[in-house]
Design a protein around this nucleic acid. Structure first.
Lengths: 219, 219
DNA sequence: AATATAATTTAGGCAAATCTAAATAAATTA
DNA sequence: TAATTTATTTAGATTTGCCTAAATTATATT
């Protein structure tokens, strides 16, 4: 199945937005891809024709098995390139998304399998998201919880759920990255902010908005 | 200046074909890009509008200073990716072109400068072609080699070491002269003959005696 | 120089991916 | 339930990059 860059972006967006849900709305996809609902409807017809999505007028969109398989390949390529950029080219995790967004569309089985091997067949990307293997299997890790719901005192940052560069830059400035160990000092009920501390550094406060997007596991 | 992938491919092709010559023909570009002359004319108008080429109807095409600068950037990206594929991912030289053809269109200054550093700022690619630096400077012109030792696929005849009229007549009959572009199709080990092809003509074979006396440079 | 051949351009069209504006369906609210 | 708002789809255009066929210009041959 040979897809255009635009088709790949739609498949990836639908995969991301579906995430367990039954169907995704035209509007949601349009917003995610910064395009117009009318364009989504057009593309939906094309992708249905190619049997990559299930779609009936006004009934929402969902990936077929075939579509999901392709989505996982695209996600795999994206996350492997992010690893490359961070591990080999010393990019920080907040810089890599846009570049990986382009690199992911270079389609070559051999390139991706060799890149994966070169990187040591990583299973998570720099944001902590799992990398599907060549067969599209995702290694299931223990469920992470967001920092705003964490109760344990010693935590390790395992991912961020919002990849906006604004958030990533903020976290970078605070010294929070993947694998950073945090001490949960206090949770303030009135605004749901949390005070945390990185070893050897003064404590600081994170708003609920931020802590909701930091995924952690207890140590 | 932001170019589409198609525009970048035209600029690169013109750069490659021009190579010292005054202008490049519509047909030559069409052949190189596996497209039709009419399409080249269309694109020529667009690129002239953007001031990347000089073009007057029926008078051939040449890059402007600005166009050449962009061409060198694209060539730089292409050749750096080829280095990456061969040096880091263990591809062989004949596999890398198509993949690099795609990777070269990922535009990010930072990506390319870091990739270059990661590779040790190489000055030639796996085919021996020079890699322009970030400012578009090329280290040195390639030394000429005789056709019987050439490895690159696309060659240009740059001279003959034996000036005997017998040889020159022979070459003339074959359509080989200074500046003729050759595709190296195959080298036959048993007698060291080479099969070559001139644009739009059937391939033919040259004996080692002949090929030893034809000096070429890779394109 | 006249004619034939080759190269190039024009004209008109097509497909992909997008858009705006208008129409229609679904969901919400009064 | 009826009215209103929101979501979605359709219709019709636009842009990019490409095509074929026909016309035009340049080049080569006699």
């Amino acid at each position: 199945m040979n897809l255009t860059v635009a088709e790949e972006n739609y498949i990836k967006s639908i995969y991301k937005l579906q995430d367990g849900d039954q169907v995704v709305s035209t509007n949601a996809i349009a917003y995610d891809l910064a395009t117009k609902p009318a364009s989504v409807t057009d593309m939906a017809k094309k992708l249905k024709e190619k049997k990559l999505i299930d779609y009936e007028k006004y009934q929402g969109i969902s990936l077929t098995t075939e579509g999901r398989k392709l989505a996982l390949q695209i996600v795999r390529r994206h996350r492997l390139w992010e690893c490359f950029l961070v591990d080999k080219l010393s990019f920080s995790w907040d810089e890599v998304h846009e570049i990986a967004e382009e690199l992911e569309h270079v389609r070559s089985e051999k390139l991706i399998s060799r890149l994966s091997a070169f990187l040591g067949n990583p299973t998570t990307d720099p944001h902590g998201d799992p990398i599907p293997d060549a067969q599209g299997r995702i290694s299931k890790s223990q469920p992470l919880i967001s920092l705003d719901k964490a109760t344990a005192r010693r935590l390790e940052v395992a991912g961020v759920s919002d990849q906006s560069s604004a958030l990533l830059e903020f976290l970078n400035a605070k010294g929070i990255r993947l694998g950073t160990q945090l001490d949960l000092i206090e949770r303030y009920e009135f605004d749901n902010s949390v005070e945390v501390k990185i070893r050897n550094q003064p404590a600081f406060t994170l708003s609920e908005q931020v802590s909701k997007n930091i995924m952690v596991k207890s140590l």
